[in-house]
Write a protein that binds this DNA or RNA. Structure first.
Length: 245
DNA sequence: ATCGCCTCCTGCGCGC
DNA sequence: TGCGCGCAGGAGGCGA
């Protein structure tokens, strides 16, 4: 049942028909997309900033932001909720990796395909800020605004430095820190800023570990400097001029 | 091809 | 205390 079809991308008008009598065969992930394999086709789901998916037995009446219910034959419901509607629920009959939204994505950050050499090679002659560069899904997926600031802080690279002017040595450090930051954040259950919770409704606590993000004006954890903030590519970026260059 | 900018949306925090 | 404004963010899309 679709109550609100205007998400980041419109929900297919025939979603109900596409899902009728379908079984869930497998659930996987690519970048920040959840891929649900059905008998015929895949659901492609993104949670945006504020979305969540819950499996509920005999669910209560839907609330304001409960946009989609996918009902199974045993009273179980997969409920998609997203206050800001930055996510999407799409369907494809083809290999989901060939879908327009997925086909140009770069490697998973925790996979072997993500290497310092890739960062270095792809960045040659690129004038874009290194922070924007690592947030570009064609370069590497999964690095959002918070983890970009944190990785660059640890690697000692200023976020607004041109991507093409960062050395292989620096990219090697950055590569390691991106992986470490993401692993730590996953282990901590994610980063709760305002209202994010995990699938069990608990807040992630990686926000307690942040050295740079959101700490404008606060003392640097590494030197006697102060954390600065600058908007880069329409996103807040936090850094320390003592530690990063 | 690359880059900068705009947009979607709602809840929250801040200032008056 | 209450109200209203502005900000936050993932990522597609567009114009230059």
């Amino acid at each position: 049942m679709v109550r609100q079809k205007m998400l980041r991308h419109p929900v297919p008008g025939n979603l109900g028909k596409l899902l009728k009598n379908q079984r869930v065969i497998d659930v996987t992930r690519r970048a920040k997309y959840v891929l649900i394999q059905l008998d015929d086709g895949h659901l492609i789901i993104h949670l945006g900033m504020t979305g969540n998916l819950r499996v509920i037995n005999k669910p209560p009446a839907p609330q304001k932001h409960d946009h989609i219910d996918i009902c199974f034959e045993d009273n179980m419901v997969l409920r998609y909720t997203d206050p800001r509607r930055f996510g999407c629920v799409l369907h494809t009959k083809r290999d989901p990796n060939l879908h327009k939204l997925l086909k140009s994505l770069g490697p998973e950050p925790l996979s072997e395909d993500f290497t310092p050499e890739r960062l270095h090679q792809l960045s040659r002659k690129r004038k874009v800020a290194v922070k924007n560069f690592i947030m570009n899904g064609a370069v590497v997926v999964g690095v959002g605004n918070i983890y970009a600031s944190e990785s660059l802080f640890r690697a000692g690279i200023l976020p607004h430095k041109q991507a093409g002017r960062v050395s292989l040595q620096k990219y090697t450090a950055l590569h390691g820190h991106i992986k470490a930051v993401l692993r730590e954040a996953i282990k901590a259950g994610g980063t709760t800023l305002r209202d994010y919770t995990n699938a069990d409704g608990f807040a992630g606590y990686f926000s307690q570990e942040l050295d740079a993000y959101g700490r404008k004006g606060e003392p640097c954890n590494r030197c006697d400097g102060v954390i600065k903030m600058k908007v880069i590519g329409q996103r807040s970026s936090f850094y320390c001029t003592g530690c990063q260059r």
